[in-house]
Design a protein around this nucleic acid. Structure first.
Length: 491
RNA sequence: CGGGGUGUAGCACAGCCCGGCUAGUGCGCUACGUUCGGGACGUAGAGGUCGGAGGUUCGAAUCCUCUCACCCCGACCA
């Protein structure tokens, strides 16, 4: 008791927040809009970081680190960029505090005003392109393929654990190239990396696509994204990859000498994913008993719970449990043997289900007599008794099965929740009664997009890259359209 | 910034309208005992500036004024 969480069906939002807190992932900080990521939540993030970092390195990227502060003048250089971020920036104006003369506490020392204000980075394009100007002279200096793991601050009006917080952790890749073709290829390559990560690690099927003009990144020529669908039928943007063209090169005057001896502006990309992926992971797979973690991202693969009445039984059970744990660890698995005598087995079962540990093994006196253990999988809740000697060998395969099953389940849901619609009435009806993704024709204008958003709160999530050409008429204006785009209500 | 709401034990809340003895309940916490194969139970106990300041009153968690903080809805949101 007391650990129960709100049911998904009752209030999805509340269920999500409850789950984040009860599973010990994160909590609201006393600092406005900020989040404290607790050890268990952070260990899942670390697994994501490890997997992504490997994928970045495998595609030729290196990590580096740039300053937290952006001089205000840097921000001013790219007009659409500043327009996009101006409203959500935290700004450092002073560098010193002092005690108030009337003893009322600490105040900002008015004498310590900065000549030029510093913006706490909402993203690092400007700082990094300022460096790229110094680093690039010749085509021989290109490409530059850099990634940065860091925190950024965006002063959002309303925040929500993991999905939108004032400060969040992310990675941002920033590349510079000699040709447009190369930069476009990089943009699409990283989109693929994100999609692969989402599908193979998060077990979340995503739709790759391009953002409409009004939804694209401030300063980008094209923004590509991966869109996932959550269990309440709302869309979540899980990652973006931007083709910057020569916009930032122009703003920061980054030119290079080509092979032919001519001067040209360099071509750029940037791409990022954030701790929002934690939100995606939770909302895509969890059930009313708690998290369901894909084994590839689970900090603990297998938990062993001993069942015992007294010290003697614990000792006998522990011997077997440790033996099994050692075998599993030899196979490269993260195993926890929870031999606490302060909690009962039932409590532990519930706790590890809440935390989404993929496999649980229970060993008790009965098993000692029979030479067995009880193996339970989190995703389906199935339990079966297995021979002690055969368990260790069977677990890696079981984990693979779980990973695949979680993905298949999410895929099935996504497919069922993706509806082609051909009239505006159907559009509104499906949106309200079913939710999910809608595939509809759109006339390509910002006006229509804005009107639909205004009337239904649905936005164009993306123009899918793999959408087949199909003649049709815009659901809103009736004007001709060449392919369907993806609509949905989003987080 | 507009609309609404909430501040009472570590957490969740009741009490407030209609002022009155020592401020309650559940979870959690501590001790002991019985339990232990799906979130145990019993007994005893600890824990409170009732968000803050001022006012009305014989008496304020309760009424009045001011103030602070947080939450929700909207606007905003690579």
């Amino acid at each position: 008791m007391g650990k129960e969480i709100t049911s998904r069906a009752e209030d999805y939002s509340q269920w999500y927040i409850d789950l984040v807190k009860k599973a010990d992932l994160a909590e609201n900080s006393d600092v406005r809009g900020c989040m404290i990521i607790k050890p268990y939540g952070y260990s899942i993030w670390e697994k994501m970081v490890q997997a992504l970092d490997r994928m970045f390195k495998d595609t030729g990227h290196e990590n580096a680190y740039f300053p937290l502060f952006v001089p205000k003048s840097f921000m001013a250089k790219e007009a659409s960029h500043v327009e996009g971020f101006a409203k959500e920036c935290a700004i450092v104006t002073h560098y010193r505090l002092k005690n108030a003369e009337d003893g009322s506490g600490v105040i900002v020392d008015p004498d310590a005003k900065l000549e030029e204000e510093l913006i706490v980075r909402p993203t690092s394009e400007t700082v990094i392109w300022n460096s790229y100007k110094k680093w690039i002279q010749s085509y021989r200096d290109l490409p530059i393929l850099i990634n940065q793991w860091c925190n950024i601050v965006r002063w959002e009006m309303r925040t929500r654990l993991f999905l939108r917080t004032s400060e969040f952790l992310w990675q941002e890749g920033h590349t510079a190239h000699a040709t447009s073709r190369e930069a476009v290829d990089e943009t699409l390559q990283m989109l693929d990396v994100y999609a692969n990560f989402a599908e193979n690690f998060l077990a979340l099927p995503v739709i790759k696509g391009k953002k409409s003009e009004s939804e694209k990144f401030p300063g980008a020529v094209d923004t590509y994204c991966i869109e996932g669908l959550m269990q309440d039928g709302k869309a979540l943007q899980c990652g973006t990859s931007h083709y910057l063209g020569q916009n930032f090169a122009k703003a920061f005057d980054v030119q290079f000498t080509t092979k032919e001896g001519k001067l040209d502006l360099v071509w750029g990309t940037s791409w990022g994913v954030s701790t929002r992926l934690m939100g995606a992971l939770i909302m895509a797979h969890s059930d009313d008993d708690g998290l369901i973690l894909p084994p590839k991202l689970a900090p603990i693969h297998v938990v062993i719970v001993p069942i015992f009445k007294n010290d003697d039984e614990l000792k006998r059970v522990s011997e077997k449990a440790n033996q099994l744990a050692a075998e599993l660890r030899r196979l490269g698995l993260a195993v926890k043997f929870d031999n606490r005598d302060t909690h009962k087995p039932g409590f532990k079962f519930a706790e590890y289900e809440l935390k989404g540990v993929p496999v649980r093994i229970a060993i008790g006196p009965r098993d000692l007599d029979n030479g067995t253990v009880e193996v339970a999988r989190r995703d389906t809740k199935e339990k079966k008794v297995m021979k002690f000697d055969e368990v260790a060998a069977a677990i890696p395969k079981l984990l693979e099965e779980i990973q695949a099953n979680i993905y298949q389940k999410a895929l099935k849901f996504r497919n069922e929740m993706t509806t082609p619609v051909d009239s505006y009435d159907d559009f509104k009806k499906v949106l309200d009664e079913k939710g999910g993704f809608l595939l509809a024709h759109w006339d390509g204008t910002a006006e229509t997009e804005a009107a639909i958003k205004e009337e239904t709160k649905a936005t164009i999530r993306c123009i899918p890259l793999n959408a087949p050409a199909e003649e049709g008429r815009c659901v809103y204006s009736g004007k001709p359209s060449a392919k369907r785009v993806l609509f949905g209500r989003a987080y």
